[in-house]
Amino acid sequence: MLTRKQHQLLLFIDDHLRRTGFSPSFDEMKDALDLRSKSGIHRLISALEERGFLRRHHHRARALEVVRMPNQTGLATPSTTAADPFVPTIIPGGRAVPVAAPRADAPATSLPLFGKIAAGLPIEALRDANTHVHVPTDMLSAGDHYALVVSGDSMIEAGILDGDIVIIRQDDVAETGQIVVALIDGQEVTLKRLRRRGSTIALEPANPNYETRIVPADRVQIQGRLVGLFRQY
């Protein structure tokens, strides 16, 4: 049996994994459980890991895996999140090759690669319509998509590393907490987590070495939302 806080944290992590494909930060877990410090989250995670409900991948940032979930009787049941984890795709030589080999007849979609986007200080995204990447069609939702190469390390705790290729669904709206491509003052483009604060927008990094940038809402234009990630080794 789990304590109430252990069960609450496990449900929060599992829901976050399903929605985003990566585990929440310690700050997000602390806020979700209304705890005063991160030390309480560390203790809860350790307890869940000891009981076999969570697995930590210590060589990766923000890499928690839900191994099993308790059912209503208190017995553990396998987690669909653990069975189907978010796995980046290797792209050697500009050709998309999934980590797990796809079916030979699996449909793929060619997306334009528009250049680099800052996951650090904002830089201009360079559009190059002559470069494309191929992604599995079933990882895309309705609407238009494009790809960008990440430059910088400010989103490492969200599992986004320098050199990764992010898949963006083109959109001009986003909910608080989503990772977005934001255009600032019509000239600077950055990849950050969006938070709405009254008449301002906070663009949050996922790295304690970087500061949150707060900008009047009328100076920010959302250009898309993160829906996928490829990794080049």
Rank of each mutant, 00 (worst) to 15 (best):
residue 121 L to V: 11
residue 157 E to M: 06
residue 105 D to W: 10
residue 172 D to S: 14
residue 113 L to G: 03
residue 135 V to A: 06
residue 127 R to P: 09
residue 184 I to K: 00
residue 100 A to L: 14
residue 166 V to T: 03
residue 114 F to I: 04
residue 79 S to Y: 01
residue 157 E to C: 02
residue 138 D to P: 06
residue 148 L to C: 00
residue 119 A to V: 03
residue 202 A to K: 03
residue 140 L to R: 10
residue 142 A to Q: 15
residue 103 R to I: 08
residue 129 A to L: 12
residue 83 A to P: 02
residue 139 M to L: 11
residue 185 D to L: 07
residue 81 T to C: 10
residue 132 H to S: 14
residue 118 A to W: 05
residue 207 N to D: 07
residue 124 E to P: 06
residue 110 S to F: 15
residue 179 I to P: 02
residue 110 S to H: 14
residue 159 G to R: 00
residue 142 A to R: 14
residue 194 L to R: 04
residue 194 L to H: 03
residue 194 L to T: 08
residue 93 G to H: 12
residue 86 F to N: 08
residue 199 S to T: 15
residue 178 Q to I: 05
residue 138 D to L: 14
residue 200 T to F: 07
residue 149 V to I: 09
residue 184 I to C: 00
residue 93 G to W: 06
residue 144 D to V: 09
residue 169 R to L: 05
residue 79 S to W: 00
residue 192 K to Q: 08
residue 180 V to L: 05
residue 156 I to N: 05
residue 193 R to H: 09
residue 79 S to P: 00
residue 197 R to S: 15
residue 134 H to V: 14
residue 82 A to N: 04
residue 145 H to M: 03
residue 167 I to R: 06
residue 125 A to I: 08
residue 104 A to M: 15
residue 120 G to Q: 01
residue 115 G to P: 00
residue 142 A to V: 10
residue 87 V to K: 07
residue 178 Q to F: 03
residue 179 I to E: 03
residue 86 F to C: 10
residue 100 A to I: 15
residue 114 F to G: 02
residue 105 D to G: 07
residue 114 F to A: 00
residue 141 S to Q: 14
residue 195 R to L: 15
residue 80 T to L: 13
residue 197 R to Q: 14
residue 100 A to G: 15
residue 142 A to I: 07
residue 137 T to W: 08
residue 106 A to Q: 15
residue 182 A to E: 00
residue 106 A to M: 15
residue 151 S to P: 01
residue 110 S to R: 13
residue 136 P to L: 07
residue 117 I to C: 01
residue 129 A to Q: 14
residue 134 H to Q: 11
residue 111 L to S: 05
residue 120 G to H: 01
residue 139 M to Q: 09
residue 96 A to C: 11
residue 156 I to H: 04
residue 131 T to W: 08
residue 168 I to C: 00
residue 195 R to M: 13
residue 122 P to G: 03
residue 112 P to V: 07
residue 187 Q to V: 09
residue 202 A to N: 02
residue 170 Q to A: 12
residue 146 Y to T: 05
residue 145 H to T: 04
residue 196 R to Y: 12
residue 99 V to N: 12
residue 200 T to K: 13
residue 113 L to I: 05
residue 120 G to E: 05
residue 87 V to C: 07
